[in-house]
Design a protein around this nucleic acid. Structure first.
Lengths: 136, 136
DNA sequence: CTTTTATCCTATCGTTTTAGTAGATTTTAA
DNA sequence: TTAAAATCTACTAAAACGATAGGATAAAAG
């Protein structure tokens, strides 16, 4: 299941990409437009800012804005920041690899074999989609 | 993340497929071989039996066995029973569809657009793999 | 018919994750 | 100096996860 965090984060990003203004957009506006709890969205935008997707401005006239162009924002990186590993098991994760303690030999593991394929197919989709693709 | 339930269920199925015996295999044997808590595995095998993947026999010489041939067991159906919907959001699920209450128009939703692609790519993999493929 | 072996079933439980909420603080513009 | 906005810290309710406990049921062996 996709977490609400990821879902809301993606919606916020696409909203920012679609308004395409040089002026910062306020949390309240995004929350209202996308039907998201404002307080919850706050924390999501914060992590997006800390991870280099958004810039912010405080005080009156403040808000959030995209730092990069939508065409330059790949879904792989967005998903990794919001949702975590793309792989469904740590033992097939490229960026968050961990060995299974119950599994003596990865190469003979059926779960491993299947999840490698699932990971690759998901990666293909995420690499193929930028923020710009999603707002077309 | 793949749940332990699904992971263990898959391992149990592949073990049963690989021993390929006409005799039922006991839970204890599977649990030991795959390093799974026996009690936990019990409940997993039970749901696999209730969903038509396994047969069982009680008493001495009892245990579990595959009902169908490994070539006939598709990963789509296994995943749906153990893990639930293949889609990451209910609004793109084929078998468990649900409308999002926050989303006014699915066709304009970026999350929807992306998750449709992810679902299709995962489905492709699961449809492409039977239990027999995983033990090769 | 009794004992043993194994599945079946229901209930419970501790931990972690999720999806928030509350409230005070800091920064900026007017 | 006041109002508007993001920032930060802490807390919480509910659900999901990963089991565990203990008895019920069924079948086979003696």
């Amino acid at each position: 299941m996709l977490s609400k965090k990821t879902k809301y984060g993606l919606k916020a990003l696409t909203y920012l990409a679609s308004v395409d203004s040089k002026e910062p957009v306020q949390i309240a506006e995004i929350a209202k437009h996308e039907n998201i709890s404002q307080k919850f969205l706050e924390s999501i935008l914060l992590t997006l800012r800390r991870n280099g997707f958004l810039g912010s401005k405080k005080g009156k006239g403040g808000g959030y804005y995209l730092i990069k162009k939508p065409e330059e924002i790949q879904m792989t990186s967005v998903m990794r920041v919001l949702e975590g590993p793309i792989a469904m098991v740590p033992c097939v994760s490229l960026n968050f690899y961990e060995k299974c303690d119950d599994c003596p030999d990865e190469n003979k593991c059926a779960v491993h074999k299947l999840m490698i394929q699932v990971r690759d197919s998901a990666l293909k989709v995420y690499r193929n989609n930028t923020l710009a693709d999603l707002i077309k």
